[in-house]
Design a protein around this nucleic acid. Structure first.
Lengths: 179, 179
DNA sequence: TTACTCATGTAAAGAGTTACATGATTGC
DNA sequence: GCAATCATGTAACTCTTTACATGAGTAA
């Protein structure tokens, strides 16, 4: 499926950037739903260059040695074809914690509670982090325009917040049942 | 991390079963949060046998040639140590659709709407499927006892339902914003 | 000068999917 | 007889992570 390819092309379709910049993008906004290590990004950029999807040039403005990539017309066409394509839902993503919960009946009640409390706390921290991101991006004041690149960012951030709220809600219900 | 190992040990800790039975378990209840193809299960069972975690015997009661596995004491100890261990939250799982939404501003509005409608429908179908599972397992009538293996099944099914409801909710909010 | 960040790469191993391959049993 | 299901396995490939490796600039 080469999804990383499209994640990279999508970023380059918004702005020219280096492999390092992409690692950072995958560590910030996009992080909630996609990520990749630099050891995966650099080889993929090389491959995309060979395929004529992107082009690199040395960044002369920087005093560090960095390669800035930009998307080609071919790359843009390929990306846009992918972007508008309606795909089947993939299998639900794997979740180690919920796998653990599936086997919970074998644990003493206080251990179950401890694990569930810890899980809840972790999601609360994540939620707070997302809320502060939302604040920092000004999404609390105004929603981005529909043709602004930040619009997708907004929807995805909203989704991440809803997911964390749901997880906390579930933890609470489970803790209720453990009383 | 060898999570598949623990998924298998967990299943064998509940009941003796064959590799084929495990594929089926991964396709039913557990499917919402873990799954594996037979091509991954059989080699793992072989490895676990070599490690002394499980033991196989020919099923004489069946007129088909099947190997039934059971967990050893060593396997059970290893599984229980894993089960009670509090691990850090992993990175959020990748989600192709939300990656797509991140780049939505580049698509015409009717395409965005079409993709979002289709996504919503897919989650509605999944939710209905989960609700009928819940009904079939009798979880609407009574909640399993805390020491029953079905207890974990119940919590995990509840979580899957909440996830699908959240996704539908998010789709609705996005569609609202696209008006 | 030392630690940190920026910046780019490769190698090896592990996890997971798809395809290849076989054979017996059951129900129509 | 034929299709579907039961049942087990291997091979090749893709995707992802961890570890190895290097070097230059920046700030204390």
């Amino acid at each position: 499926m080469r999804t990383l390819k499209y994640a990279i092309l999508g970023l380059l379709n918004q702005n020219d950037m280096s492999g390092y910049d992409m690692s950072e993008a995958f560590g910030e906004t996009l992080n909630e739903f996609w990520h990749a290590k630099h050891s995966q990004i650099y080889p993929e950029l090389k491959k995309l260059t060979d395929e004529g999807m992107v082009m690199a040039e040395e960044d002369e403005t920087s005093n560090r040695s960095r390669k800035v990539y930009h998307i080609t017309n071919k790359g843009r066409e390929d990306f846009m074809a992918w972007l508008g394509k309606d795909e089947d839902l993939p299998e639900t993503p794997k979740d180690i914690f919920r796998l653990r919960v599936f086997f919970f009946s074998r644990l003493p009640m206080d251990t179950r509670r401890k694990l569930m409390d810890s899980q809840k706390l972790a999601h609360e921290l994540r939620l707070r982090h997302l809320e502060s991101n939302k604040q920092a991006k000004g999404f609390n004041q105004n929603i981005p325009a529909k043709d602004d690149d930040a619009w997708g960012d907004y929807l995805v951030l909203m989704s991440a917040i809803m997911r964390e709220e749901m997880m906390i809600d579930w933890c609470n219900r489970c803790l209720e049942l453990m009383k």
